[in-house]
């Protein structure tokens, strides 16, 4: 018992930089969340991992080859065409010539929605897909869904020039809103997607069928968001107008569309709702993920 000297405070402070120093102390976690300072410092230190893992994933999916890249453009473009015809058939406008305005709206919204859907979908599988790495390496797990969002973003980039073509065909304006407000809304969408990717990645560990119902959620979400229709279309429908702000993508994609396609600065309320959804989702999603992530190794 002679060695049983009392514990001192210094060990607790040494744990603060436990990842970086030589001395590591592992103790039971008192509450759900790890020490955020250390966690995000480590996360930042390993950002290369997220980048490399995303790149490797894209190489694996042949996204880096010519036809892989081409497919990233052709796939959403074909979908945009399908929706364009569908809308025209439904509204009885078929045969009235090419409506470049509408096509620009559909492509602009659909491409960014595809980015969102892809990021969340890939993110959902990221933790379960990392299997052995989770079991045998200690690192901030949040890197995995974030890498998926990066992948989604890089798959979105090749569609931007395609949109620009339709933008020009439709004669849409180029102004400050296009170049400033639209990218900011794109950032909001990215942050929102990261939050959701984290939530679904954690859920997928517990319920492996999460990814099978995700596509249905996304499909409904697509129809209830201003992708195929514009924010103006709601005017006069009181019920829809009240409910719309509760759909995060209403403000996020709606604001993005207004700024990008019409060159209008969205109203303040749209800015605030979009920002609130984006940062709220990130806060809740990351918090949920981090509080569960130590459990992943025994659940995989």
């Amino acid at each position: 018992m002679s060695t049983a000297t009392p514990r001192s405070e210094s060990s607790a402070s040494a744990a603060d930089d436990s990842y970086t120093s030589v001395y590591h102390l592992y103790e039971p976690h008192k509450v759900g969340l790890p020490k955020l300072g250390v966690y995000f410092k480590e996360l930042w230190k390993r950002r290369e991992f997220a980048a490399e893992s995303s790149k490797a994933g894209m190489r694996g999916a042949n996204s880096m080859t010519f036809f892989g890249q081409a497919w990233l453009v052709i796939n959403p473009l074909l979908l945009a065409l399908v929706y364009y015809f569908l809308l025209n058939v439904v509204s009885g406008k078929i045969g009235q010539g090419f409506d470049a305005q509408q096509m620009a709206h559909i492509t602009g919204g659909l491409f960014v929605f595809y980015f969102f859907q892809g990021a969340v979908g890939t993110g959902a599988g990221s933790v379960v897909g990392a299997g052995k790495l989770i079991l045998n390496t200690a690192f901030p797990r949040l890197l995995l869904p974030l890498a998926a969002v990066r992948t989604g973003f890089y798959r979105f980039l090749p569609t931007v020039p395609v949109y620009i073509v339709f933008h020009i065909l439709a004669g849409n304006p180029w102004n400050v809103a296009t170049f400033v407000a639209a990218p900011i809304f794109l950032l909001f969408i990215t942050i929102f997607a990261a939050g959701l990717a984290a939530v679904f990645a954690a859920l997928q560990v517990y319920f492996r069928d999460t990814s099978s119902f995700l596509p249905y959620v996304m499909r409904i979400w697509l129809y209830t968001s201003p992708v195929l229709w514009t924010i103006d279309a709601l005017r006069g429908h009181r019920f829809a107008e009240i409910l719309a702000p509760f759909n995060p993508l209403y403000a996020l994609i709606g604001g993005y569309g207004e700024a990008l396609q019409r060159g209008v600065f969205p109203s303040l309320s749209v800015w605030l709702i979009a920002a609130a959804w984006a940062f709220g989702a990130a806060l809740v999603g990351f918090g949920f993920f981090m509080s569960r992530e130590r459990d992943f190794a025994v659940r995989l």
Partner: peptide
């Protein structure tokens, strides 16, 4: 795994130097 920091201890403490 606990020594590598992958599984958190439920009780007790682990210290590693390095």
């Amino acid at each position: 795994r606990a020594l590598a920091g992958i599984l958190p201890p439920t009780k007790g403490r682990i210290e590693t130097w390095g």
